[in-house]
């Protein structure tokens, strides 16, 4: 349940990034900036959902404080730094820099997503059991 919900959110973020990248490649600068800002907001929101609700609940249930969730938080920090660098590159019209940073960002993001989708979310699903539905509801409400 958590896996499906969070995986769909990963894909929605990927689609926004791709649209921004494609717009910039087509020299549609304003559209690229608008789409990137949407992606920036959506990705930060995704990280916040995990850090403020999903991971904390998992940690309370399992008592696993310094384990996988801590590692994911550390990766979020690295990814947030990349998101900021790309935003800066776009705002200062350094488009080559945007593509350059974007290439490594995308690999890092996808590796991060794979770890979550293949290991962490299934573990959270196992831990939460039927409470998974409530958690999805909570996550949905965080978007409003």
């Amino acid at each position: 349940m958590i896996l499906e919900f969070m995986r769909d959110d990963h894909r929605a973020c990927d689609a926004l990034y791709t649209d921004a990248e494609n717009a910039l490649a087509n020299k549609n600068i304003d559209e690229a900036k608008r789409l990137y800002n949407e992606f920036y907001r959506a990705t930060n929101h995704h990280f916040n959902m995990e850090e403020r609700a999903l991971f904390t609940t998992f940690e309370k249930r399992t008592g696993m404080m310094g384990g996988p969730t801590q590692m994911m938080r550390y990766e979020h920090q690295q990814l947030r730094a990349q998101l900021e660098s790309m935003l800066k590159a776009l705002e200062t019209d350094q488009y080559d820099d945007f593509f350059g940073i974007g290439e490594s960002f995308m690999i890092m993001l996808q590796q991060h997503n794979m770890k979550e989708e293949q290991m962490l979310y299934p573990m959270i699903d196992q831990t939460l059991g039927t409470d998974g539905e409530l958690m999805v509801q909570t996550l949905k409400e965080m978007a409003q």
């Binding site: 696993m64 590692m71 550390y74 290991m119 962490l120």
Partner: peptide, 11 residues
Amino acid sequence: MFRRGLSLEQA
């Protein structure tokens, strides 16, 4: 095993 999988050794 999971703890090792998501350790600081990302690469």
